[in-house]
Design a protein around this nucleic acid. Sequence first.
DNA 1: ACCCAGGGTCATA
DNA 2: TATGACCATGGG
Length: 224
Amino acid sequence: MLKRDRQRFYKVYERLIQRYGEQHWWPADSPFEVMVGAILTQNTNWTNVERALENLKARSSLDARQILEHEHEVLAGFLKPSGYFNVKAIRLTTFCRWYIEQGGFEKIDREQTQQIRESLLAIKGIGPETADDILLYAFKRPVFVIDAYTRRIFSRLGFVSDDLSYEQLQQIFEQALETDVAMFNEYHALIVRHGKTHCRTVPQCTGCSLKTLCRYPASSDGSG
DNA sequence: ACCCAGGGTCATA
DNA sequence: TATGACCATGGG
């Protein structure tokens, strides 16, 4: 990748952090809570996830073994506010079994990033984004998380094609940027923060703080 | 009433 | 491999 193309990705980051400030992700008291939250937040508003986490904390203290003690209906009841409660109860249960099987957080070798990733992806209900949330925000590994906002924003900016696979898009970010956990953390959080307020209601980013970085002409169909 | 959210799986063609 | 259906609550 050309240096000036890489610089575009940095400029977006600088612009976002100027606009929104640090986001301090991931909001959680423990790595395990990050992992649970990563599953519960699938296609769901974070405020709904917080309610489900509160229900779990009230009864389970967010421990894998204690979560497995509950009957499916009870667990699903706790997860109700986060939506998809039946599938998420199964996903969380499956994940907890995996977690215990690994021997817990401290027993997992953080350095084996790709190995952990593949192990996570083998769990039914954990796809690439959830796996990367866990790797970045729980294990502090330098993987760039791709989500729907990332696709929308950067394809509208004209930086990337809109039909790339998850891994292709991720490669572009990881090649454009230096390998920096703290920056990857902030960058993804800022993309979500920006996407929440701009990309949904405003298809073409009128008054968007990124519009001067858009590669399309201003008279064209705008940017995200 | 409608649209969406910090996705992922499965059936179908 | 590529769409479409499905999961489901809460807020705008």
